[in-house]
C-alpha cells in the first residue's frame, strides 16, 4: 500500500510540475519547476528498483543539464524578452489555433491511454526479477554495450567542440 501511495504522489507531482512548466511565461520558473518534476521522476525510478538511474537523474539531469539551462536563461536575461511580440496579432495565439492545439494534445493523450489500458497485458504487477545492482549495469555497459559506450564518448566530444564553436563571439 505504501508504494502505491508513493507512486500516485510522485506521479501527481511530476504531471503538475510538467504542466506548470509549459504554463509559465518566465523561463526561470519553468526551469525550476522542471527540476521538481525530475525529482519526482527520480522517486519513481526508486520505486521501480532502479537506484542507479534515480541517482544519475538527480546528478546529471537536475544537477548538470538544468543548471546549464538556468545559466543560459540568466545570461540572456530572457524574462522581459518574451513580451516583445504582440500576442493579439500572432496567428498561432488566436483562440481557434490554441483550442485546436489543445485538442490535438488531448487527443494524443486519450489515444495513448486508451491503447495502453485496452491492451490488457499483465495485471499482476512486475513479474520479472529485479535488476537493481550497479555492478550488473556496469558489467553490461563494458561488455555487451561497450561499442555504444565508446561512441558516446565521441558524441560528447563532438557536442563539446560544437558548443564552443557555436557560442564563440565572432571577433577575430
Amino acid at each position: 500500500m505504501g508504494s502505491e501511495l508513493a507512486f500516485y504522489l510522485f506521479a501527481a507531482v511530476a504531471v503538475v510540475a510538467s504542466l506548470l512548466v509549459i504554463a509559465q511565461r518566465n523561463p526561470i520558473y519553468s526551469v525550476l519547476l522542471l527540476i521538481a518534476s525530475f525529482g519526482a521522476l527520480s522517486g519513481l525510478y526508486v520505486l521501480l528498483d532502479a537506484p542507479f538511474v534515480a541517482v544519475i537523474q538527480i546528478v546529471v539531469y537536475a544537477g548538470a543539464i538544468m543548471v546549464l539551462f538556468l545559466f543560459v536563461v540568466m545570461l540572456l536575461n530572457a524574462p522581459h524578452e518574451e513580451t516583445e511580440y504582440d500576442e493579439r496579432v500572432h496567428p498561432l495565439l488566436q483562440a481557434g489555433p490554441l483550442r485546436f492545439g489543445a485538442f490535438l494534445a488531448a487527443a494524443l493523450m486519450v489515444e495513448l491511454v486508451w491503447a495502453l489500458t485496452k491492451g490488457g497485458g499483465e495485471a499482476g504487477g512486475f513479474p520479472g526479477r529485479s535488476v537493481s545492482s550497479v555492478k550488473e549495469i556496469g558489467r553490461l555497459l563494458f561488455t555487451e554495450y561497450s561499442f555504444p559506450f565508446e561512441v558516446t564518448s565521441i558524441l560528447i566530444l563532438v557536442a563539446m567542440v560544437g558548443a564552443v564553436v557555436l557560442a564563440r563571439r565572432e571577433t577575430p
Binding site: L19, I22, G101, A105, L116, G119
Partner: peptide, 24 residues
C-alpha cells in the same frame, strides 16, 4: 497494485504535455 500500465499511462501523459509545450 501498481502495474506496468500505470507507468506507461503516466509516461504517455508526460509525453503529451511535452508535445503540447513544443507547440504552445
Amino acid at each position: 497494485m501498481i502495474t506496468v500500465n500505470h507507468y506507461l499511462v503516466l509516461s504517455a501523459i508526460l509525453f503529451a504535455i511535452g508535445t503540447a509545450g513544443v507547440f504552445v
